Lab assay of single mutants.
Amino acid sequence: GKELVLALYDYQEKSPREVTMKKGDILTLLNSTNKDWWKVEVNDRQGFVPAAYVKKL
Rank of each mutant, 00 (worst) to 15 (best):
G1H: 14
G1P: 14
K2W: 12
K2Y: 12
K2A: 11
K2E: 10
E3H: 11
E3L: 12
E3Y: 10
L4T: 08
L4S: 07
V5H: 03
V5N: 01
V5K: 00
L6S: 05
L6P: 00
L6W: 07
A7F: 01
A7D: 00
A7W: 02
L8E: 04
L8M: 09
L8G: 02
L8T: 04
L8C: 08
L8R: 05
L8K: 05
Y9W: 11
Y9A: 13
D10A: 06
D10F: 04
D10H: 05
Y11K: 00
Y11S: 00
Q12M: 13
Q12H: 13
K14N: 10
K14V: 09
S15E: 08
S15A: 09
S15G: 12
P16V: 09
P16N: 10
P16Q: 10
R17P: 06
R17K: 12
R17W: 15
E18K: 04
E18S: 07
V19H: 03
V19M: 12
V19T: 06
V19D: 00
V19K: 02
T20W: 04
T20Q: 05
T20P: 07
M21C: 07
M21F: 10
M21W: 01
K22W: 09
K22A: 08
K22T: 10
K22L: 09
K23T: 06
K23D: 02
K23E: 07
K23A: 13
G24F: 05
G24P: 00
G24S: 03
D25R: 03
D25Y: 05
I26S: 03
I26Q: 05
I26G: 01
I26A: 03
L27P: 01
L27Q: 01
L27I: 07
L27N: 01
L27Y: 09
T28W: 11
T28G: 08
T28N: 08
L29E: 00
L29D: 00
L29P: 00
L29F: 03
L30M: 07
L30P: 00
L30N: 02
N31F: 07
S32E: 15
S32C: 13
S32F: 07
S32K: 07
T33D: 15
T33M: 11
T33Y: 10
T33L: 10
N34C: 11
N34S: 09
N34D: 15
N34Q: 10
N34L: 09
K35T: 10
K35H: 12
K35R: 11
K35E: 11
D36W: 15
D36K: 13
D36H: 14
D36F: 15
D36N: 13
W37F: 06
W37K: 03
W38C: 04
W38A: 03
K39W: 15
K39I: 15
K39G: 06
K39H: 10
V40T: 00
V40D: 00
V40W: 00
V40G: 00
E41Y: 06
E41G: 08
E41M: 11
V42W: 09
V42N: 15
N43Y: 12
N43R: 14
N43A: 13
D44N: 13
D44K: 11
R45L: 07
Q46Y: 07
Q46F: 08
Q46H: 09
Q46N: 09
G47Y: 05
G47P: 00
G47T: 03
F48P: 00
F48R: 03
F48E: 04
F48M: 08
F48W: 15
F48C: 12
V49H: 00
V49Q: 00
V49R: 00
P50N: 02
P50F: 03
P50Y: 02
P50E: 02
A51S: 14
A52W: 10
A52R: 15
A52E: 11
Y53M: 14
Y53H: 09
Y53V: 07
Y53L: 14
Y53Q: 07
V54I: 08
V54L: 15
K55T: 14
K55M: 13
K55H: 11
K55G: 09
K55C: 15
K55N: 07
K56M: 12
K56A: 08
L57Q: 05
L57F: 09
L57V: 11
L57A: 04
